[in-house]
Design a protein around this nucleic acid. Structure first.
Ligand SMILES: [Zn+2]
Ligand SMILES: [Zn+2]
Ligand SMILES: [Zn+2]
Ligand SMILES: [Zn+2]
Lengths: 146, 146
DNA sequence: CATTTAATTGCAATTGGTTTTCAGTATCGC
DNA sequence: GCGATACTGAAAACCAATTGCAATTAAATG
């Protein structure tokens, strides 16, 4: 039985005249099995543990498809490295990041989300999306510092 | 009479063993006279209208000093280009950006700021800073689209 | 003011993540 | 199968930003 995610991906592929290839299959499977927030480089290294001759460009190209199809979300914390995470079946969330150890906590606050809409509306803007990153020290790194 | 901003800058320079040079003076003055949100490249082009042989690297290096001294704030909207704006005497604010025309509105909402602290606290984090960008369509671009 | 030392400059080369080019190869609808 | 189209890996290109370097300049000291 085909999972729901796979169906969404295959439909997107078909609807856009894209072909399924062994490389894409491998990359998509690896992406879906990898939890958390990771870079293209990291995904590439995991993929290569399985099949060694997958090109880096193919990983980037497939990640683009994953984002476009709604399976992946891409964001960057301001250091020039794009991070990817699962988007299908995952509700919207923002991130709380430890500047010391890099730990990332997924956060969501309906009050903030509502206020964002309201503030945008105050200026006549129609809001499409937003990004919010909170940076600080996680409990563990606070202790280590003290 | 020396302005307060200039004093802060010169003090920072002196306290860190940095020298004042004609190039730095020009770049800082140009920065202070330029309002809004602009890239290093843009600032460089304005600087070169005044003195043609200022190096690009010097602009980047001086912008770094401006950020470190608290005169400038640097952020990027996710497209890989750093934008700079005045920070001295400017209260913290976030940005509302039109994805069509690039218009940027400075926003501030105390409720959001409070909630950010609260959410971080919920996970034991000590919050240091945050970035929030709201993307959408400004009133003008909405009309043009309809 | 001259001297000395450390900082700064412009240029060009380099970096690092990401994208593009290209010639060969594989996929898909028929 | 077959042909049109899409995909691949490798390498080159991109591009904002940084860095190495030799020449120049600021500024602290006497
Ligand atoms: Zn949110
Ligand atoms: Zn996440
Ligand atoms: Zn804010
Ligand atoms: Zn601003």
């Amino acid at each position: 039985m085909k999972s729901s995610v796979e169906k969404v991906f295959l439909d997107y592929m078909h609807d856009n005249g894209l072909s399924m290839t062994p490389q894409r299959k491998l990359i998509v499977e690896t992406f879906l099995e990898t939890e958390g927030h990771f870079s293209a480089e990291t995904l590439w290294s995991i993929v290569r543990e399985r099949v060694s001759d997958v090109g880096q460009a193919t990983v980037y190209r497939t990640l683009k498809i994953l984002v476009d199809s709604g399976l992946a979300d891409c964001f960057d914390l301001g250091d020039g490295v794009s991070l990817y995470e699962h988007a299908y079946g995952h509700e919207h969330h923002d991130h709380l990041v430890c500047m010391q150890c890099g730990a990332k906590v997924e956060i969501f606050d309906q009050t903030i989300e509502n206020r964002q809409e309201e503030v945008a509306g105050r200026f006549g803007f129609e809001l499409t999306r937003h990004r919010m990153y909170l940076f600080g020290l996680c409990p563990k790194c606070q202790k280590e510092k003290a």
